[in-house]
Design a protein around this nucleic acid. Structure first.
Lengths: 343, 343
DNA sequence: CTGTTAGCGCCTTCAG
DNA sequence: CTGAAGGCGCTAACAG
């Protein structure tokens, strides 16, 4: 029976107790600082634990206490600098509070997201941090009902669901971009849109339309293109937009990836930025300053998004009153050359 | 007793068994496809499980089977595009094989790495994927002895430890860079070094020295600077190098972050790249083409690093014969303008 | 202040 | 082919 175990002998709480000459429950109390213990008993247990290099099994502990101190983190694409940085920010907060992170990538796919959530729930995570790609409400409710787990959305949300959200100031950000381009004298302005299954995508598009309307400017259908967040999508979309009979003189991009594609497309078509096409984008990047031309952008701290979301989640896991909290991350305009500003 | 449970009623294997009218052991067999079962029993159990939306507790399962199907992933900095992408690659392979990823960030610190490994081991992960920041051998051995866990190093290794490694072709890569710069006629070449606590850092520095020697070129102490992997370090190092009495005419950078700092420093000092300072770097980046100037680089697929490392780890977790496997990721030179090549 | 007892939810011998 | 029993390692009532 015992010979099947790979590990010759797993050091267990019982072992520690035996060496310390106390019962297992006492050993447990000593190690977790619970209950009243005589100093010498405590010392004996601690000593024994150290001697045996006892490492309590989180597994057993979790099974018993019904809490795993693990949080699930679901993003469309971990390799994206934004999500990677948000993850890092969240990680910091969570570790402070004693939580670990189980990571899942939804691969930009609603099905993948459902799968990820299901797995995480099967692992009995204590909480969920998710940048949704636009899962159906019904699916979410089903999962949530099966096993209620505190959940905070970030970057994109499922309106009304979960215990809160931390989103970017999408509206004000796009407004900053459009206003600035208008100040430069542009009136034919195009838009590179992101995924319209995500609220970050739709909010930016809606804000663009609103801002244009506010300036009395028309939004031409053929000057709006995109649909995904990649440089490739930006390249294709910009080619299409620049290929129209009367192309726009300026372009607002919903993300830095899209903007990269735009620069590439302009270069390919021999269109000079910003002289023939002004460009301004949502999202700053650490290399934006060094691009050719340097990219005018709406900046914010991606790590802060993660930190704040994690903060909300920790609160929700502790209190568990169903009170929602929705936060927005402030953004600011960083003027560089791509919009037509001089250095 | 039961009223303390947050979840009104957790659906358990016993419930499924009851509904299906069989014993718990039979239900378990049916759900895991073990043993011989009559078709109707199996069907009844599956039906009951679906009806109750049974989601087996991985926790309990793991406690019993002594395997968690979880892998620990430790990197110096998740927010770095390289590690984020490697993570993504690893994730793909691991999920195929049924493993989940528990992520830890060592914060570029040996102490943090030890802490991360300890936590992961306490969670009884089945395997470890680590990009070490240069933890002490003794510390590693201690942790490994306490609870032997398959471990594969990637990017940087702890020579001789673990069950294998997947490293980049650091030597050949740097050689490509030096050779190319020499071809451009340079003889005073400087080096931006990364962290020398990591083998990726030392291998690149050593390769630089070797390549220079091979060309009969002197490596000047004051033309070698750096020590960390960040753009800031690159900025400071390049300032220092360019501030020397006879600065180099070309610079090899150990990483793209460092190179970004170099471009910034050159710009700040009014030094034109590549005319006054040629630049070539290890690591390609998706935006390298769009920089000013476009960056000549040694390229490889970061996701592949993760995939291969995960592949090795999965094999090690399955077979468990202590056979080491060490792999190298092939690299290639991508010529762009920063080295002096014409477009 | 401490020990005994009883499980958390699941899997796996061992019998039948 | 199926059921009963035991236990993974830990914690929390409940008694002393």
């Amino acid at each position: 029976l015992r010979n099947r175990l790979r590990t010759p002998h797993e050091v267990t709480l019982a072992d520690v107790a035996k060496v310390a000459g106390v019962s297992a429950s006492t050993a447990s109390r000593a190690l977790n600082g619970r209950g009243e213990l005589s100093d010498e008993t405590r010392a004996a247990v601690l000593e024994a634990a150290r001697e045996l290099q006892f490492e309590p099994s989180q597994l057993a502990r979790s099974l018993r206490t019904r809490t795993t101190f693990t949080v699930g983190f679901v993003v469309p694409d971990v390799s994206s600098p934004f999500y990677a940085t948000a993850l890092k920010g969240a990680q910091g907060r969570l570790e402070e509070a004693g939580y670990r992170v189980l990571l899942m990538d939804s691969e930009q796919d609603a099905g993948g997201e459902v799968e990820a959530l299901r797995t995480l729930i099967a692992h009995r995570v204590d909480g969920l941090l998710v940048a949704t790609v636009g899962i159906e409400r019904g699916r979410f409710d089903e999962l949530a009902s099966r096993r209620p787990t505190p959940c905070v959305f970030f970057d994109s949300e499922l309106a009304g669901r979960g215990d809160g959200s931390v989103l970017l100031d999408n509206g004000p950000g796009i407004e900053l971009l459009v206003d600035h381009l208008v100040q430069h004298g542009h009136s034919r302005i195009g838009l590179l849109v992101g995924s319209l299954r995500e609220t970050s995508g739709t909010e930016r598009r809606d804000a663009f339309n609103d801002a244009m309307r506010r300036h009395g400017l028309a939004v031409r259908r053929e000057h709006v293109s995109g649909g995904r967040w990649s440089p490739e999508a930006g390249l294709v979309a910009t080619r299409a937009i620049l290929g129209t009979p009367r192309p726009p003189t300026a372009l607002v991009s919903s993300s830095v990836e899209l903007a990269l594609g735009a620069i590439a497309a302009a270069r390919e078509l021999g269109v000079r930025v910003p002289d023939e096409l002004a460009l301004a984008t949502f999202d700053d990047a650490y290399f934006a300053e060094l691009l050719d031309p340097p990219l005018t952008a709406v900046a914010y701290d991606p790590a802060e998004v993660g930190r704040r979301a994690a903060g909300l989640l920790v609160a929700a896991m502790r209190d568990g009153d169903g009170s929602r909290r929705d936060e927005r991350i402030r953004v600011e305009l960083v003027r560089r050359r791509s919009c037509g500003c001089e250095p």
